[in-house]
Protein backbone atom coordinates (compact mmCIF):
# COMPACT_ATOMS: atom_id res chain seq x y z
CA UNK A 1 0.00 0.00 0.00
CA UNK A 2 2.76 2.38 0.85
CA UNK A 3 3.87 2.01 -2.75
CA UNK A 4 0.51 3.23 -4.03
CA UNK A 5 0.53 6.12 -1.57
CA UNK A 6 4.02 7.04 -2.67
CA UNK A 7 3.01 7.14 -6.31
CA UNK A 8 0.27 9.65 -5.50
CA UNK A 9 2.53 11.68 -3.28
CA UNK A 10 5.12 11.95 -6.04
CA UNK A 11 2.51 12.95 -8.60
CA UNK A 12 1.16 15.51 -6.16
CA UNK A 13 4.62 16.98 -5.64
CA UNK A 14 5.27 17.33 -9.34
CA UNK A 15 1.90 18.96 -9.95
CA UNK A 16 0.46 18.67 -13.45
CA UNK A 17 2.56 16.21 -15.39
CA UNK A 18 2.08 15.47 -19.06
CA UNK A 19 0.06 12.43 -19.99
CA UNK A 20 2.76 10.04 -20.99
CA UNK A 21 4.92 10.27 -17.87
CA UNK A 22 2.09 9.46 -15.43
CA UNK A 23 1.64 5.93 -14.12
CA UNK A 24 -0.90 4.54 -16.54
CA UNK A 25 -4.38 3.59 -15.30
CA UNK A 26 -3.59 0.03 -16.46
CA UNK A 27 -0.58 -0.09 -14.11
CA UNK A 28 -2.64 1.36 -11.27
CA UNK A 29 -5.31 -1.27 -11.86
CA UNK A 30 -2.84 -4.13 -11.76
CA UNK A 31 -1.23 -2.86 -8.55
CA UNK A 32 -4.61 -2.19 -6.90
CA UNK A 33 -6.16 -5.56 -7.67
CA UNK A 34 -2.87 -7.36 -7.01
CA UNK A 35 -2.77 -5.88 -3.52
CA UNK A 36 -6.21 -7.24 -2.62
CA UNK A 37 -5.83 -10.66 -4.23
CA UNK A 38 -2.58 -11.05 -2.32
CA UNK A 39 -4.11 -9.83 0.92
CA UNK A 40 -7.11 -12.15 0.54
CA UNK A 41 -5.69 -15.14 -1.34
CA UNK A 42 -8.78 -17.28 -0.74
CA UNK A 43 -11.24 -14.79 -2.18
CA UNK A 44 -11.87 -15.20 -5.93
CA UNK A 45 -11.79 -11.89 -7.82
CA UNK A 46 -15.52 -11.76 -8.62
CA UNK A 47 -16.38 -12.29 -4.93
CA UNK A 48 -15.06 -8.81 -4.08
CA UNK A 49 -18.29 -7.49 -5.59
CA UNK A 50 -19.97 -8.63 -2.36
CA UNK A 51 -18.15 -6.16 -0.15
CA UNK A 52 -17.55 -7.12 3.43
CA UNK A 53 -19.46 -10.40 2.94
CA UNK A 54 -16.71 -11.65 0.65
CA UNK A 55 -14.32 -11.71 3.58
CA UNK A 56 -16.53 -12.23 6.63
CA UNK A 57 -18.07 -15.66 7.16
CA UNK A 58 -19.83 -14.53 10.32
CA UNK A 59 -22.09 -11.96 8.64
CA UNK A 60 -22.26 -13.75 5.28
CA UNK A 61 -25.01 -16.19 6.29
CA UNK A 62 -27.20 -13.45 7.62
CA UNK A 63 -26.70 -11.47 4.42
CA UNK A 64 -27.54 -14.48 2.27
CA UNK A 65 -30.76 -14.89 4.21
CA UNK A 66 -31.58 -11.22 3.59
CA UNK A 67 -30.89 -11.66 -0.13
CA UNK A 68 -33.61 -14.36 -0.22
CA UNK A 69 -36.21 -11.64 0.30
CA UNK A 70 -34.25 -8.58 -0.74
CA UNK A 71 -35.24 -5.27 0.84
CA UNK A 72 -34.55 -3.49 -2.48
CA UNK A 73 -37.15 -5.46 -4.42
CA UNK A 74 -39.90 -2.87 -4.02
CA UNK A 75 -37.51 -0.20 -5.27
CA UNK A 76 -36.76 -2.23 -8.41
CA UNK A 77 -40.49 -2.50 -9.10
CA UNK A 78 -41.02 1.18 -8.44
CA UNK A 79 -38.08 2.00 -10.72
CA UNK A 80 -39.41 -0.21 -13.49
CA UNK A 81 -42.79 1.46 -13.34
CA UNK A 82 -41.25 4.92 -13.51
CA UNK A 83 -39.02 3.79 -16.33
CA UNK A 84 -42.00 2.70 -18.41
CA UNK A 85 -44.30 5.61 -17.60
CA UNK A 86 -44.25 8.23 -20.39
CA UNK A 87 -43.27 11.83 -19.59
CA UNK A 88 -45.89 14.53 -20.21
CA UNK A 89 -44.56 14.82 -23.76
CA UNK A 90 -45.26 11.14 -24.38
CA UNK A 91 -41.62 10.01 -24.51
CA UNK A 92 -40.01 7.62 -22.02
CA UNK A 93 -36.58 7.12 -20.50
CA UNK A 94 -35.94 4.50 -23.17
CA UNK A 95 -35.62 7.29 -25.75
CA UNK A 96 -32.52 8.68 -24.02
CA UNK A 97 -30.38 5.57 -23.79
CA UNK A 98 -28.67 2.96 -25.88
CA UNK A 99 -30.66 -0.28 -26.19
CA UNK A 100 -33.77 1.41 -24.84
CA UNK A 101 -32.05 1.79 -21.49
CA UNK A 102 -31.95 -1.94 -20.74
CA UNK A 103 -28.69 -3.42 -19.43
CA UNK A 104 -26.75 -0.22 -19.92
CA UNK A 105 -25.60 0.73 -16.42
CA UNK A 106 -22.31 -0.76 -17.56
CA UNK A 107 -21.85 2.25 -19.88
CA UNK A 108 -21.33 4.49 -16.84
CA UNK A 109 -19.36 6.30 -15.62
CA UNK A 110 -17.57 7.40 -18.79
CA UNK A 111 -15.65 10.47 -19.83
CA UNK A 112 -17.84 12.58 -22.11
CA UNK A 113 -15.44 14.28 -24.51
CA UNK A 114 -18.07 16.76 -25.70
CA UNK A 115 -19.24 17.84 -22.26
CA UNK A 116 -15.70 17.71 -20.92
CA UNK A 117 -16.62 15.82 -17.77
CA UNK A 118 -17.42 12.45 -16.30
CA UNK A 119 -20.98 11.36 -17.06
CA UNK A 120 -22.74 9.11 -14.52
CA UNK A 121 -25.98 7.20 -14.94
CA UNK A 122 -27.63 9.38 -12.29
CA UNK A 123 -26.74 12.57 -14.11
CA UNK A 124 -27.79 11.06 -17.46
CA UNK A 125 -31.20 10.25 -15.98
CA UNK A 126 -31.72 13.84 -14.90
CA UNK A 127 -30.52 15.14 -18.26
CA UNK A 128 -33.08 12.87 -19.89
CA UNK A 129 -35.77 14.35 -17.66
CA UNK A 130 -34.90 18.00 -18.24
CA UNK A 131 -34.54 17.43 -21.98
CA UNK A 132 -38.12 16.14 -21.90
CA UNK A 133 -39.48 18.98 -19.82
CA UNK A 134 -39.51 17.18 -16.46
CA UNK A 135 -38.01 18.48 -13.22
CA UNK A 136 -34.73 16.82 -12.14
CA UNK A 137 -34.83 14.34 -9.25
CA UNK A 138 -32.80 14.44 -6.02
CA UNK A 139 -29.55 12.51 -6.27
CA UNK A 140 -29.07 10.76 -2.92
CA UNK A 141 -32.20 8.61 -2.52
CA UNK A 142 -35.84 8.27 -3.44
CA UNK A 143 -37.17 8.06 -7.00
CA UNK A 144 -33.82 8.47 -8.71
CA UNK A 145 -32.27 5.72 -6.59
CA UNK A 146 -35.19 3.44 -7.55
CA UNK A 147 -34.68 4.15 -11.25
CA UNK A 148 -30.97 3.39 -10.96
CA UNK A 149 -31.86 0.23 -9.01
CA UNK A 150 -34.03 -1.00 -11.88
CA UNK A 151 -31.39 -0.13 -14.46
CA UNK A 152 -28.70 -1.81 -12.34
CA UNK A 153 -30.89 -4.89 -12.09
CA UNK A 154 -31.16 -5.21 -15.88
CA UNK A 155 -27.36 -4.95 -16.04
CA UNK A 156 -26.64 -7.75 -13.57
CA UNK A 157 -24.09 -10.28 -14.69
CA UNK A 158 -22.25 -8.01 -17.11
CA UNK A 159 -18.59 -7.36 -16.38
CA UNK A 160 -17.28 -3.98 -15.29
CA UNK A 161 -15.17 -2.61 -18.13
CA UNK A 162 -14.66 1.13 -17.67
CA UNK A 163 -12.48 2.85 -20.25
CA UNK A 164 -10.11 5.73 -19.65
CA UNK A 165 -9.62 7.14 -23.15
CA UNK A 166 -6.20 8.42 -24.18
CA UNK A 167 -7.26 12.02 -23.76
CA UNK A 168 -5.60 14.50 -21.41
CA UNK A 169 -8.87 15.70 -19.85
CA UNK A 170 -10.10 12.15 -19.26
CA UNK A 171 -6.79 11.27 -17.66
CA UNK A 172 -6.96 14.40 -15.51
CA UNK A 173 -10.44 13.38 -14.31
CA UNK A 174 -9.12 9.93 -13.47
CA UNK A 175 -6.07 11.35 -11.66
CA UNK A 176 -8.30 13.73 -9.75
CA UNK A 177 -10.47 10.85 -8.54
CA UNK A 178 -7.39 8.90 -7.59
CA UNK A 179 -5.95 11.82 -5.63
CA UNK A 180 -9.27 12.19 -3.81
CA UNK A 181 -9.19 8.53 -2.86
CA UNK A 182 -5.68 8.67 -1.38
CA UNK A 183 -5.82 12.16 0.18
CA UNK A 184 -6.15 12.68 3.91
CA UNK A 185 -9.10 14.81 4.85
CA UNK A 186 -11.19 16.00 7.74
CA UNK A 187 -10.28 16.66 11.34
CA UNK A 188 -9.55 12.96 11.76
CA UNK A 189 -7.07 13.19 8.87
CA UNK A 190 -7.87 9.93 7.08
CA UNK A 191 -8.08 8.93 3.43
CA UNK A 192 -10.48 6.43 1.89
CA UNK A 193 -7.44 4.20 1.39
CA UNK A 194 -6.58 4.23 5.09
CA UNK A 195 -9.78 2.37 5.88
CA UNK A 196 -10.62 0.50 2.68
CA UNK A 197 -7.13 -0.45 1.45
CA UNK A 198 -4.61 -0.49 4.33
CA UNK A 199 -7.14 -1.78 6.85
CA UNK A 200 -9.55 -3.79 4.71
CA UNK A 201 -10.50 -6.82 6.78
CA UNK A 202 -9.64 -5.09 10.06
CA UNK A 203 -12.19 -3.90 12.55
CA UNK A 204 -12.90 -0.29 13.38
CA UNK A 205 -14.86 -0.67 16.59
CA UNK A 206 -17.28 -3.49 15.78
CA UNK A 207 -17.36 -2.78 12.02
CA UNK A 208 -15.31 -4.87 9.64
CA UNK A 209 -13.85 -2.69 6.87
CA UNK A 210 -14.62 -3.75 3.30
CA UNK A 211 -11.98 -3.80 0.55
CA UNK A 212 -12.26 -0.90 -1.92
CA UNK A 213 -12.06 -3.45 -4.71
CA UNK A 214 -15.70 -4.04 -5.69
CA UNK A 215 -16.98 -0.95 -3.91
CA UNK A 216 -19.14 0.37 -6.73
CA UNK A 217 -20.40 -2.75 -8.50
CA UNK A 218 -23.63 -3.01 -6.54
CA UNK A 219 -25.03 0.49 -6.06
CA UNK A 220 -27.61 1.70 -5.28
CA UNK A 221 -27.68 -0.05 -1.93
CA UNK A 222 -30.42 -0.71 0.56
CA UNK A 223 -28.82 -0.12 3.95
CA UNK A 224 -30.62 -1.23 7.06
CA UNK A 225 -28.99 1.69 8.84
CA UNK A 226 -30.59 4.12 6.36
CA UNK A 227 -33.82 2.15 6.16
CA UNK A 228 -33.86 3.03 2.49
CA UNK A 229 -32.00 2.88 -0.78
CA UNK A 230 -29.05 5.22 -1.34
CA UNK A 231 -26.79 6.06 -4.26
CA UNK A 232 -23.00 5.73 -4.28
CA UNK A 233 -22.64 9.47 -3.71
CA UNK A 234 -24.77 9.18 -0.58
CA UNK A 235 -22.23 6.68 0.73
CA UNK A 236 -19.30 8.92 -0.22
CA UNK A 237 -20.94 11.70 1.71
CA UNK A 238 -21.37 9.48 4.78
CA UNK A 239 -17.77 8.29 4.68
CA UNK A 240 -16.55 11.90 4.35
CA UNK A 241 -18.58 12.95 7.39
CA UNK A 242 -17.26 10.02 9.36
CA UNK A 243 -13.79 11.60 9.38
CA UNK A 244 -15.36 15.01 10.14
CA UNK A 245 -14.73 16.32 6.64
CA UNK A 246 -17.24 18.47 4.80
CA UNK A 247 -19.00 16.25 2.29
CA UNK A 248 -19.28 17.32 -1.34
CA UNK A 249 -22.58 17.54 -3.17
CA UNK A 250 -23.90 14.45 -4.92
CA UNK A 251 -22.82 14.69 -8.58
CA UNK A 252 -20.18 17.30 -7.78
CA UNK A 253 -17.11 17.05 -10.04
CA UNK A 254 -15.20 15.62 -7.06
CA UNK A 255 -17.60 12.72 -6.53
CA UNK A 256 -18.00 12.04 -10.26
CA UNK A 257 -14.23 11.77 -10.66
CA UNK A 258 -14.01 9.60 -7.56
CA UNK A 259 -16.70 7.33 -9.00
CA UNK A 260 -14.75 7.18 -12.25
CA UNK A 261 -11.53 6.12 -10.52
CA UNK A 262 -13.19 3.66 -8.13
CA UNK A 263 -15.35 1.96 -10.76
CA UNK A 264 -12.35 1.58 -13.06
CA UNK A 265 -10.50 -0.12 -10.19
CA UNK A 266 -13.25 -2.78 -10.22
CA UNK A 267 -12.82 -3.66 -13.89
CA UNK A 268 -13.27 -7.41 -14.36
CA UNK A 269 -15.83 -7.82 -11.56
CA UNK A 270 -19.52 -8.47 -12.20
CA UNK A 271 -22.12 -5.71 -12.05
CA UNK A 272 -24.44 -6.90 -9.26
CA UNK A 273 -26.66 -4.02 -8.20
CA UNK A 274 -28.77 -3.19 -6.41
CA UNK A 275 -27.25 -4.47 -3.17
CA UNK A 276 -28.11 -4.91 0.50
CA UNK A 277 -25.78 -3.91 3.29
CA UNK A 278 -25.87 -3.31 7.03
Amino acid sequence: MKKLLLITAVIGALGAVPLISQASPEDDLKAFQGYFTERFPNVPLEEFANGVYAIDKASREQWEAIEEFPPYEIAIEEGEEMFNTPFKNGKTYASCFRNGGIGIKSDYPYYDIEKGRVETLASAINECRTKNGEAPLKYMKGELASLVAYMAYTTRGQIVDIKIPFDQRARDAYEDGKRFFYARRGQLNMSCAHCHVDNAGNKIRADLLSPALGHLTHFPVYRSKWGSLGTAHRRFSGCNKQVRALPFKAQSPEYRNLEYFMTYMSNGLPWNGPGARK
Binding site: N199, N202, K203, I204, R205, A206, D207
Partner: peptide, 18 residues
Protein backbone atom coordinates in the same frame (compact mmCIF):
# COMPACT_ATOMS: atom_id res chain seq x y z
CA UNK B 1 -10.78 10.03 21.92
CA UNK B 2 -12.66 7.00 20.63
CA UNK B 3 -9.39 5.12 21.09
CA UNK B 4 -11.30 1.83 21.28
CA UNK B 5 -12.18 2.21 17.60
CA UNK B 6 -8.66 0.97 16.93
CA UNK B 7 -7.04 -0.23 20.18
CA UNK B 8 -7.71 -3.01 22.61
CA UNK B 9 -6.99 -2.10 26.20
CA UNK B 10 -7.97 -3.13 29.71
CA UNK B 11 -11.63 -2.29 30.52
CA UNK B 12 -12.42 -1.64 26.85
CA UNK B 13 -15.37 -3.23 25.02
CA UNK B 14 -16.14 -3.78 21.31
CA UNK B 15 -12.63 -2.71 20.39
CA UNK B 16 -11.31 -2.56 16.86
CA UNK B 17 -7.97 -4.06 15.87
CA UNK B 18 -6.43 -1.47 13.56
Amino acid sequence: GNCLACHKMKDGTLEGNI
